[in-house]
Amino acid sequence: RGFLEKAAVKKMAKAIMADPNKADEVYKKWADKGYTLTQMSNFLKSKTAGKYDRVYNGYVIHLD
């Protein structure tokens, strides 16, 4: 289950990176699912340092 969630989160993160207008909708879905910042950090780990920082930081702001 965790692997599928991670894959889904990364897919949506890539969608945000391609079209930032989708961010609020995606952040709301993640918040509704109760994803914590720790979970998001783990889901968005990448071999490329900083690749998903913008998405993660946007989610931090959304939760605030």
Rank of each mutant, 00 (worst) to 15 (best):
L4G: 12
V60M: 12
N57H: 11
I61V: 13
K14F: 06
Y35E: 00
V55Q: 01
V9A: 04
F3S: 14
A7C: 15
A23G: 06
G34D: 03
N57Q: 14
L37I: 10
K29Q: 14
Y35K: 00
A7E: 11
F3E: 11
L63I: 07
V9F: 03
M12Q: 15
I61K: 15
L63G: 03
F43W: 15
K29R: 12
V55A: 06
A13I: 03
L63C: 08
N21I: 07
T36I: 03
A49D: 13
T36L: 03
A13Y: 02
K33G: 05
N21R: 13
L63W: 05
A31S: 10
P20R: 05
T36E: 04
I16V: 11
K51Q: 10
A31E: 08
L63T: 04
E25R: 08
E5W: 05
K10L: 13
R54A: 15
G2Y: 12
T38F: 10
M17C: 09
R1K: 13
T36H: 03
V60I: 09
A31M: 09
R1L: 12
K11M: 11
M40G: 01
L37W: 03
P20K: 06
A23F: 02
G34A: 05
A13G: 03
Y56G: 01
A31Q: 09
P20D: 05
A8M: 14
G58A: 04
S46Q: 06
Y27A: 00
A49E: 13
R54N: 15
A7T: 09
K51Y: 13
G2T: 12
A8R: 13
V9S: 01
I16L: 07
P20S: 05
M12L: 08
H62F: 15
F43V: 05
M40L: 13
F43P: 02
K47F: 08
K6G: 12
Y56W: 06
D24K: 10
A7H: 13
K22Q: 09
K11G: 07
V9R: 01
E5P: 06
E25H: 07
R1N: 12
E5N: 07
Y59W: 03
K28G: 08
Y52P: 00
S41A: 15
K47N: 13
M12A: 11
A23V: 03
